[in-house]
Nucleic acid binder design. Structure first.
Lengths: 224, 224
DNA sequence: AAAATAAGATTGTCAGACAATGTTGTCAAG
DNA sequence: CTTGACAACATTGTCTGACAATCTTATTTT
């Protein structure tokens, strides 16, 4: 018998509000830098101000919004320098995660990555950028889950969330998706071969290229 | 004329409450795993429940406390595996920070590190573990401030806070302080010589040794 | 002793209030 | 016409009080 997580996470109003807000921000419902008004959010999310403010604290901790006393919340606006730093650290951490995953990933983990990659390919064929992002997410989640470090997993999750914006735009860049697929395939290949160093190299290289693409995306957007 | 940060940070009740709680936890006023009662904290901190709960969200985001719905807050209890992961990631990030600092640190930064190290020596002579911790903190803060990556700085700050407990105990370990001083001196030497690789090596090695000491400390404490 | 139950404690959530602070628009002076 | 002062308005910071949902503990029953 398989142990499926029975512990049902109690979904509090607050959690839901935070989740909804998070999604809204990640999906670009609010524009970076845009100010948010508590009363307004309360109405839209249908929660009390007390609960909303707790939710805001959560998002602020995730750096998805900025909370300045007496000025209220605003959607976090990231500078390129900051984004670049994130990509850099991400490269390090993801490289390390890949390195570790190479010797720790079990069959189930590998299969999950393979299936995510297959889905990515389908998404590329269909030119569905959102699905591509989702598939990449699953691909990495599988790897991180099997890398043996909850801390790395946790840090990466936080960092990646902060550059979702750029990732989404990057995927829409012509040619980037196919390029990305090649890189992921190389990473997965290294993992399957238990080639830790190769996996690290593939992972860091992938992030490096993603960073380059993000750079042009960032500039383009700035122009507009 | 020197630019001193004029921007006075508005100190809200909530910030103060969070700060006080944070200090209390880091200083071991509460024991790991101990449950906290909101009403109780409200009285002690003299804030309303609404404000307190926001403060709790902040600490939860910092992983200093755990918040389980319907069960309230409890002081975070860390397992050795988790602590080891933190040390490992910390080694990576601090190594990278040192590497970058080697070519970016200015004279003022170096002087700050030197002065922190001097203070550390005095603390060692006096066998004042708390002062040692504080001096190490200043030492690293100076390095991180000059490493050119706010992200690394931010991540390290969060990680280190989660192992304060172990660090404090480790410093009290006979011989560890002096050993630590030697390692820091080596790191600073590399930075002064702009030897990036040497700096990285020194930094990671320092963390590695700290991790080993922490390990024995953790076990000892477990026995009691 | 184990299970069921009741009483008490604690949290989740809301509504409403008010002072402090920030924002905006108006108007007069330079 | 810009600049500054000032009033009017909007928004946030914080508190109080409340009540149902949930957890914990003590008590009773089997």
């Amino acid at each position: 018998m398989r142990e499926v997580d029975l512990k049902v996470i109690p979904r509090t109003v607050l959690d839901l509000a935070a989740q909804n807000l998070r999604n809204a921000i990640l999906n670009g419902v609010f524009r970076p830098g845009e100010r948010m008004v508590e009363a307004d959010l309360c109405q839209r999310l249908d929660v009390s101000r007390a609960s909303l403010r707790e939710a805001l604290r959560i998002l602020a901790a995730e750096k998805l919004i900025t909370l300045v006393p007496n000025r209220g919340p605003s959607v976090a606006a990231i500078s390129w320098d900051e984004a670049e730093e994130i990509y850099h650290v991400r490269a390090m951490l993801e490289g390390e995660a890949a390195f570790r995953a190479a010797t720790r990933l079990d069959t189930a983990g590998l299969r999950a990555m393979q299936s995510a990659l297959a889905e990515f390919d389908r998404a590329v064929a269909r030119r569905d950028a959102d699905l591509q992002i989702a598939a990449t997410g699953r691909f990495y989640d599988a790897m991180l889950a099997g890398c043996g470090s909850g801390i790395i997993q946790e840090l990466l999750h936080g960092l990646v969330a902060r550059i979702t914006f750029l990732r989404a735009r990057s995927m829409r860049r012509p040619g980037r998706a196919r390029e990305s697929a090649t890189e992921l395939r190389r990473l997965l290949g290294a993992l399957e071969a238990c080639d830790a160093r190769g996996a690290r190299a593939a992972a860091t290289e992938h992030v490096r290229l993603a960073c380059e693409t993000a750079r042009t995306v960032f500039d383009d957007q700035r122009a507009a």
